[in-house]
Design a protein around this nucleic acid. Sequence first.
DNA 1: TAGATTGTTAATCGATTAACAATC
DNA 2: TAGATTGTTAATCGATTAACAATC
Lengths: 226, 226
Amino acid sequence: MSADVAARRGIPDASVARLPVYLQALTSLAERGITNVSSEELAAAAGVSSAKLRKDLSHLGSYGVRGVGYEVDRLAFEISTALGLTQDWPVAIIGMGNLGRALAAYSGFATRGFNVVAVLDHDESIVGTVVADHAVRPMSDLDTLVREDKLAIGVIATPADSAQDVADRLVAAGVRSILNFAPCVLDVPDDVVVRKVDMSTELQILAFHEQRRSGELDLTDEEVAL
Amino acid sequence: MSADVAARRGIPDASVARLPVYLQALTSLAERGITNVSSEELAAAAGVSSAKLRKDLSHLGSYGVRGVGYEVDRLAFEISTALGLTQDWPVAIIGMGNLGRALAAYSGFATRGFNVVAVLDHDESIVGTVVADHAVRPMSDLDTLVREDKLAIGVIATPADSAQDVADRLVAAGVRSILNFAPCVLDVPDDVVVRKVDMSTELQILAFHEQRRSGELDLTDEEVAL
DNA sequence: TAGATTGTTAATCGATTAACAATC
DNA sequence: TAGATTGTTAATCGATTAACAATC
C-alpha cells in the first residue's frame, strides 16, 4: 500500500491530532534556521516521546534518513500534504460577539492556510457593520457562500443557545466541517465532523488537578495505606 | 476504597475530560425543568454512549438508582465536587490582544466557578488601561497576585513568541495550572499542568477530514481493492 | 567500517464496549 | 412482583512504549 493510500485511509485519530503540533515545531525550527532534525530533537520540541513521533510519522510514509534524521522543510511539507494544507480552506465565522470579533481579527488563520471568506450574524442590527475588514452578512447568505466561495468550514462563535440552530443551518447549506466555540454539544448527521473548543471545559479540567493537588496534602493514614 | 478516595486518586484522564460535558448537559436539562434522567438520555445529550457514561460516573461513586436513573441536581453537584468546582478559582489572563480582551469580557468564566482576578500585559503602554472593568496590570504583579489573591490558574493569550516567557514567569510566581491559547508547546516542570486551546490545530484536523472526504471520491480501482 | 538513527515489531497499557447480575 | 436501569465485569479494541533490526 502506497503512503498516499495509507494516509488517506488509516491514520489513527490520535496521530492526526498530533500532526499540527509537529508542524508547529517544525515551523519554529525552520524560523531559527535549523534545516535538519532527529526524531529525538523534534519530539522534545513537540512535547512527546521520540517513539511516539516516529510511530506517528510512519503512518505518513518514510521521509527520514536512518542515521541522519529528517530534513525540516521536507517533513513540514509532507505533514502539510497529509493534513490537506496544500490548498486554502474557505472559512466563515458565525456570531459577532466578543469572541467572534476576536477570531475575525486573528491573523493566525491566514498564515496557516485558512481564508476567512465571510463573517455572519443573525442580528439584523449587526449585519452590514464592518468587522476586521469584513461586512457582516446575514445568515441567509450561507447557501451563496457554499456555492460561490466553496465554503467548507463553519466556525460557531455564538452563545450556547443559538449554536444548534446555527449548526443546522450550516449543515443544510452543505457545510460538513464545524468548529464549535459554544459551550454545548451539537447534534449533527454522521458525515459532519465537529471539533469543539471550550475554555470552560479546559479550566474545569485544570480545577480538577488543582483540587487533587491540595487534596493529596491531607490524605488520612487509612487512605495512604491503600 | 471509598468513592472519595477513588475520586482523589484514580479517575482516568479520559473520564475527567468528559465530566465537564456531562455537567453542561445536566445544567441544560435543569434549565428545562427536568429533574430526573436515565444514563441513556444523559448520554444522548452529552454525545457519548450510555455504557461510557455509566463507566465514567462509576469512578465518582454510586449516585444513581437502579431501575430509576439519576437526579439531575444531585448528579450535577457530585460532578462539580469531583471537579473541584465547589470553590471559586482565581484566574489571571495574560496578554491583552484581541483574544485576551475577548476572554476578559467572556461571561462564561464567572458562571462556571472561575473568577478573573486580574488581566496583565508586558506592554507598558497598555498597562493601566481598562479592559472589561479591569485595569491592566504589569507582569511584575504576578507574585502579589499569587500571594494576596491566591491566583491558581494563568491563561496565556499572548503571541506564540512570548508564551514561553510568560509561562516561566507564572511558574516562578508559583502558578501550577496554565491554559495556553498561544500556538506553541510550553516547557514547564513536571508538577505544572498545561492545557492547550488552539484553533489552528482544530482547523487543521478539520482540513484533514475535508481532504480525505474529497480524496475518497476518486480512489483508483487498485486502492478500492485493498 | 563504525556510529547513529530511522522504521517496525511485539509487548504493554489504558480505554471502550457489550452484556448482565444486582437491585430499585 | 414485573419492569427498568444501574454499576460492574470481562472482552475487545486502540494507543503507547521499548527494543532492535535495517540501513544510511
